[in-house]
Design a protein around this nucleic acid. Structure first.
Length: 513
RNA sequence: GACCCCAUCGUCUAGCCUGGUCUAGGACAAGAGCUUUUCAAGCUCUCGACACGGGUUCAAAUCCCGUUGGGGUCGCCA
């Protein structure tokens, strides 16, 4: 019953709309426009209306429409009313006829109805940009109804915005030049001209239009990539609006309170993936682990890590907790935590290489022996034993940590090793450490390779020193600049600050002998 | 080309309306350090901008004009 009342004193009620065309996916720019409309409706207690601009029957597709609606729903933007322009063709025709009767429009040879644009100055007052003036002399006569009887965009848009009682038209900057064309139609039909607010465009990294080349453009792509809707919404908001108080991560309810059209930026913004990633990581970090688990389950099923019919939620939760603080997308989780779910540990190329560099069979054996003694295989007990072994062997902890990590996960990076081991459990740790020993055994060529490299090194070194001695006899100081001397320089400058040594190199060097 | 819009660190922005408090604040990225079993995260620090030129004014990032640069639109697409 209150619904009826709202409409009757609807003169003051704010009504905004988002008008997507189902000829493509909902993209970043469209979503931001929708968001600002939605936000304004929520802020003012008005209505958010969806109008599907499907007048182009050729290009409009049901799948696109579904995708757009799905994306909006995913982003938690609910709408109050929906209209389809394809169902309103007779209404547009009716108004075109009115203009025809008034003599303000004429029929072309092909049957199209065309509006006569007069010569006048058209002023629009944009809430974001202020007053903008156009000269209608520069506007051509406007087609209202096309030869095929379908309405043109500008005509259908005006009729609908007027008839649906849209009070504020918030749309992309690229529509500024459509505005005078629409204003003359409003006036010709005696409609009240709505308020306009033209939102700045979102640009790609290259400063041009956001395109697939510069990154994903469809909202559904971001969903697939593992972004959280809250994070994406938050990011989209930041593109053109500042919540104030140096806030970046903002709750949507908070934003609804603060949202004001006049505080929207004028300048176009570049879409920055890095910041989106950061924001998403923030949201993942503060998300409830159980909620994240639910989001992750379909992805784990898809990867074949768990079975759809039977999986253990309680088993996944601690894995999620272990990785939650260090991933920035849901996809990251699936990639980084694969070894927890699969017993076929896939070795990264880099990890594999590093692993074979040094045979730690004996050390692993000792580790296995000591781990066997642990009854409660928890992370403190593991760490205790581990440190014991390291001490006994006279090694640095890192020297054993890294190979063990690779043996367990196939990766050189990951969460804390002891937590990881506790999570995997005693049996899996045992199996994988034993498998690692097999790897060394089956790859004796790796040791051969080592020896080969060593001899090459020695050989070239002696060759070089031999050459150098000969040269020194022949030449004065000034130094020959062969590649060999450059290489040896690299090695000899280990302590030098000027020589950038990668961490990997350092690791190899520290652990080689 | 015509018309229109825009202009603060590499990027997102605060400040601009209502000039002084701005030797311009925050965030992302980058760099350095701390921490550390790795990579992250976290913490600390560093680098880094008012496009340019004229006005107005005691005083301009803030107001005005111009230039330059960028973007948008010029469809019987939306």
């Amino acid at each position: 019953m209150s619904r009826g009342m709202n409409i009757s004193n609807g003169a003051s009620a704010i009504r905004v709309r988002f008008a997507p065309s189902p000829t493509g996916f909902l993209h970043i720019g469209g979503a931001r426009t929708a968001l600002f409309n939605w936000l304004y409706a929520k802020h003012t207690g008005g209505k958010f209306i969806l109008r599907i601009e499907d007048t182009d029957l050729e290009r409009s597709k049901k799948e696109y429409l579904d995708e757009i609606l799905d994306s909006l729903t995913w982003l938690a933007m609910d709408w109050d009313e929906v209209y389809y322009q394809s169902q309103r063709f007779n209404i547009y025709r009716e108004y075109a006829d009115k203009l025809l009767k008034k003599g303000m429009a004429y029929t072309a040879e092909n049957g199209a109805i065309i509006f006569k644009v007069g010569a006048e100055k058209i002023k629009i007052n944009d809430i974001i940009r202020g007053e903008i003036e156009f000269d209608s002399e520069l506007i051509k006569d406007q087609v209202l109804i096309k030869e095929d009887k379908s309405p043109t965009y500008n005509f259908a848009c005006v009729i609908d915005d007027a008839l649906l009682g849209i009070t504020h038209v918030l749309r992309g900057d690229d529509h500024i030049s459509n505005t005078p064309k629409q204003v003359v139609l409003y006036e010709a039909l005696g409609f009240k001209v709505p308020y306009f607010a033209h939102l700045p465009l979102i640009l790609g990294k290259d400063g041009g239009r956001l395109s697939k080349r510069t990154g994903a453009t469809a909202i559904s792509d971001y969903r697939k990539l593992g972004y959280l809707p809250e994070a994406l919404t938050n990011y989209l908001l930041l593109l053109g609006f500042s919540p104030g108080g140096n806030q970046e991560v903002v709750d949507i309810a908070e934003v609804i309170k603060k949202f004001e059209l006049k505080n929207i930026n004028k300048a176009a913004a570049v879409f920055d993936m890095d910041k989106l990633n950061w924001l998403n990581a923030q949201y993942i970090k503060k998300a409830d682990a159980a909620h994240l688990t639910e989001l992750l389950i379909p992805r784990l099923i898809e990867r074949g890590f768990i079975k759809k019919e039977n999986f253990n939620r309680d088993g996944i939760l601690p894995v999620v907790k272990l990785f939650q603080g260090r991933i920035s997308t849901l996809t990251d989780f699936v990639n980084w935590a694969d070894f927890v779910f699969s017993d076929k540990v896939k070795f990264d190329e880099e990890a594999h290489k590093k692993f074979l560099e040094r045979n730690l069979s004996k050390e692993f054996s000792l580790l296995l022996e000591r781990f066997a003694q642990i009854t409660d295989f928890n992370h403190t007990a593991i760490e205790e034993k581990f440190r014991e072994v390291v001490k006994e062997l006279g090694m640095k902890a890192g020297d054993l940590v890294h190979p063990v990590r690779i043996a367990l996960s196939g990766k050189t990076i990951g969460p804390g090793l002891f937590e990881t081991m506790a999570l995997l459990g005693k049996n899996k740790v045992k199996e994988r450490l034993m498998m690692a020993k097999e790897l060394w055994k089956n790859a004796p060529e790796a040791r051969l390779k080592c020896l080969m490299w060593l001899s090459i090194l020695f050989f070239s070194a002696s060759l070089f020193s031999g050459c150098a001695m000969v040269r020194m006899l022949k030449e004065t100081m000034g130094g020959p600049k062969s590649t060999i001397s450059d290489e040896s320089k690299d090695v000899s400058q280990e302590g030098s600050e000027d020589n950038p040594v990668t961490k990997a190199d350092k690791w190899i060097r520290d652990n080689w002998w």
